[in-house]
Design a protein around this nucleic acid. Structure first.
Length: 185
DNA sequence: TCGCAGATTGCCT
DNA sequence: GGCAATCTGCGAA
C-alpha cells in the first residue's frame, strides 16, 4: 500500500478532503498496527472561512495549520476530546486542514474495542472524538509527518462510489458551505 | 426514538 | 469568563 505523498496534500483543501475518502488511515503503536478506511471528512481553510481555527491570526494552537503541508493537526476540545486533521492547502491559502470525522475499522479492531470500552463495532470510530480514542491519538501526535511511514500516516485505499456533500457539523459559523464529505461502503 | 444537558480542559477576548 | 470542528447517558413520550 502506497503512502500518500506531500503532493497529494498540496492542493485545494476542499479537493483534498473529497479525495481522502476511501483512503486508509494507519496508526502504529509499537509493533501493532491499527487502521481504517476514511468515510467522512471536513475541509477547514484559513482565509475566508469563519468556522476554521485559522480564520483569524496565527496562535500557539493553530500554527500547525499554517505550517508544513502533510502534517497532522491534533487539538483538544470540549474538555475531553481530541480531533485529528491533515494539513492540506494550495499556494493560494495561508492555512488549511482536513478533519477526519469517521473511519471504518480494518486492522486492530480488538485494540480499538479495548480503547473505546465498547464492543459495538459500528460505534467504534464513527465520530472524530471516537476515532482518536480508538486509535489512541492524542496531543502527542500533533505535528507529525503523514507522508512518512511513522506513527500516523495515510495510504492509498479504495474508490468511493457515491460521495455525499453536506454542511459541516458542530460549528456555528460558515454553515452555508457544503464542505462535509462522506460515502457508504 | 428523540432531545437535552453534563462532563471538563484549554484557548481566546 | 465564555465557549468550543463532541460524546454519552438519561428522561420523556
Amino acid at each position: 500500500m502506497k503512502v500518500l505523498s506531500r503532493k497529494f496534500y498540496s492542493r485545494d483543501t476542499v479537493c483534498v478532503a473529497r479525495e481522502l475518502l476511501g483512503k486508509i488511515l494507519v496508526r502504529k503503536i509499537g509493533r501493532q498496527k491499527l487502521s481504517g478506511i476514511i468515510t467522512e471528512t471536513e475541509a477547514y481553510k484559513g482565509n475566508n472561512d469563519p468556522a476554521s481555527h485559522a480564520a483569524k491570526k496565527i496562535t500557539e494552537r493553530n500554527k500547525v495549520m499554517f505550517g508544513q503541508i502533510g502534517k497532522t493537526y491534533v487539538y483538544f476540545t470540549y474538555g475531553n476530546h481530541f480531533m485529528l486533521n491533515a494539513v492540506a492547502k494550495n499556494e493560494k491559502n495561508n492555512a488549511g486542514a482536513v478533519l477526519i470525522r469517521s473511519i471504518e475499522p480494518q486492522n486492530g479492531i480488538k485494540s480499538m474495542i479495548k480503547n473505546r470500552k465498547t464492543s459495538v463495532i459500528s460505534n467504534l470510530t464513527n465520530g472524530p472524538g471516537k476515532l482518536t480514542q480508538a486509535m489512541n491519538i492524542t496531543k502527542e501526535q500533533n505535528n507529525i509527518d503523514l507522508t512518512k511511514n511513522s506513527l500516523v500516516f495515510i495510504t492509498d485505499g479504495i474508490k468511493p462510489k457515491k460521495i455525499l456533500k453536506k454542511p459541516r457539523i458542530g460549528i456555528t459559523k460558515g454553515t452555508e458551505k457544503l464542505w462535509n464529505f462522506s460515502f457508504q461502503t
